[in-house]
Design a binder for these strands. Structure first.
Length: 465
RNA sequence: CGGGCUGUGGCGCAGCUUGGUUAGCGCGCUUGACUGGGGGUCAAGAGGUCGGGAGUUCAAAUCUCCCCAGCCCGACCA
């Protein structure tokens, strides 16, 4: 199951991709074109994320795709961080542009040029904006879903009156939106904490991250929430008049998660037979599979389908009996549908159908009457057990070490927790030379430190996608 | 930009080191029968100027040179 093979994706991932079920075959160099099934996954994620984002008080808006090059130059770290991966438009409208525009790699500069005009008074704060958009980063090495040239994401941009407000909001997004979503919906446990200065977002004063372990023991950064301090506020002159009439620069955050989550979901839960989807994100939660249409099988299946749909379950009735049963089972398995109800004449003669769970592959006969209730229970169980399994795997693949060398050794198959004091900038460079990075910093008890400068922090290190 | 690899029916590959009948295999496809509770079985078929060019040779998928195309690994990263 998900044996690490160098940088290779698991075999089934390749198979799924090759079948065209999830996406175009590789990101090549161009755009990420999400095929229907993967997009359905993204839509489910969007719905769950959007709800949480709005609960956190942010409202959706949309900003332009093209950013004047000069905007990016205003924040020194930001432009330095993104320059190598920008797609720049030099010609438009049939002529060469006086000033090139870049295709947004992220929208801090665009949004903040607006914030500067919008924000006047302390009464305008906090300003909490979220954008669902596509962005482009000309990465040297694309990886399907995990790092595509073009990707879809949500990016939040906020402005606050005080540093404390901004800090609190960045943490709120990390916890109440991202961690909650990843754990409760995706069933993927995540470590949270600040990045080291080396790994920090270009232009941020602090980058908080959600780090998940994939099936092969490697790490994936699932989402980030940045404190931007006053860096952009100064660069774009975003000020407000406080209660005393003083002009003050705002304090800001930005935060985002992307279609990388689709890849993370696949890599975290998938097994050799394909995807295993937590019911909360599964576009199809239950498939009622007609084995053969004899003795009222199709009618029973349709009726079960209606009953389940009536209770709010996302259900599909598969009555394509012209396709062999084995082939259809395998297809649904590959797609990770959490629960299948197999309806066939043999069982039905005894008033039963077969309930199959994707997570552990178990099959169990249930009566037609009790089937809907059992399905709902099985869905809840699937959601729970995927999380438990992922958490157990992460815990058994994470060890405490005391030296950088031991950390490198441990990172061959999982993560290591090592005192940040024994790593430091030098140790971090040494790790990087071995392909190992500090994923995040934590307090010894796993808590979120106020900053990376706090004493007695623990660095969680591993290899990353 | 460095390092490595591959081009052979629709798809995935073997054959090449050591040149030799008619270039094989799996999947897919066509036809028929039997099947149908996990990608079925049996039988019969269709489908290839071996990436392109030049050369060596009695003889080239195989050896030599040139060209073209694609992929993988490293640096970058949501």
């Amino acid at each position: 199951m998900l044996t690490p093979r160098g940088q290779d994706f698991p075999k089934w991932y390749q198979d799924v991709v090759a079948k065209g079920e999830l996406a175009d075959n590789g990101p090549v160099r161009g755009t990420m074109v999400i095929r229907p099934y993967a997009f359905a996954l993204w839509e489910r994620m969007q719905a769950e994320l959007d709800r949480r984002i709005k609960q956190a008080g942010a409202q959706n808006a949309y900003f332009p795709l093209f950013i004047p090059e000069s905007y990016l130059r205003r924040e020194a770290d930001h432009v330095e961080g993104f320059s190598p991966e920008l797609a720049v438009v030099t010609h438009a409208g049939g002529k060469e542009l006086d000033e090139p525009v870049v295709v947004r790699p992220t929208s801090e500069t665009m949004v903040n040029s607006s914030f500067a005009k919008w924000i006047q008074s302390h009464r305008d704060l906090p300003l909490l904006i979220n954008q669902w958009a596509n962005v482009v980063r000309w990465e040297l090495r694309p990886r399907l879903f995990l790092r595509t040239t073009e990707f879809l994401w949500q990016e939040g941009h906020t402005a606050h009156a005080t540093r404390a407000d901004a800090t609190a909001y960045a943490e709120r997004i990390l916890r109440d939106v991202y961690e909650d979503f990843m754990v409760e919906v995706l069933a993927i446990p995540v470590l949270t904490g600040p990045k080291t200065a080396r790994e920090r977002f270009a232009g941020a004063i602090n980058t908080l991250t959600c780090e998940a372990m994939m099936g092969d023991g490697k790490a994936l950064q699932m989402g980030t929430s940045h404190e931007l301090g006053q860096n952009f506020a100064r660069a774009f002159d975003i000020t407000y008049s406080d209660e005393h009439g003083e002009r003050t620069h705002v304090w800001q955050t930005s935060w985002g998660v992307s279609t990388r989550l689709v890849g993370g979901l696949i890599m975290a839960h998938g097994d050799d037979a394909g995807l295993r989807l937590p019911p909360a994100v599964a576009p199809t939660q239950v498939v009622v599979l007609v084995v053969r249409d004899e003795a009222g099988v199709a009618e029973t299946a349709a009726s079960l389908g209606r009953e389940l749909a009536g209770t709010g379950v996302r259900v599909v009735v598969d009555d394509h009996i012209d396709v062999g049963f084995g082939r259809r089972s395998v297809d649904w398995e590959l797609k990770g549908v959490p629960v299948r109800l197999e309806v066939g004449p043999r069982d039905l003669a005894e008033g039963r159908v077969t309930l199959v769970r994707r997570v552990d592959g178990t099959k169990e006969p249930v009566t037609v009457a009790e089937a809907p209730g059992r399905v709902v229970a099985a869905l809840a169980e699937a959601q729970r057990s995927l999380l438990v399994e992922a958490r157990r795997r992460r815990e058994s693949s994470t060890i405490d070490v005391e030296t950088v060398e031991d950390a490198i050794e441990a990172a061959r198959s999982g993560w290591a927790r090592v005192p940040w004091a024994v790593v430091g900038d030098e140790g971090e460079n040494h790790l990087a030379g071995k392909g190992v990075t500090v994923r995040c910093l934590q307090r010894a008890d796993g808590g979120l430190p106020a900053s990376g400068d706090e004493a007695d922090l623990v660095a969680v290190v591993g290899r990353a996608y």
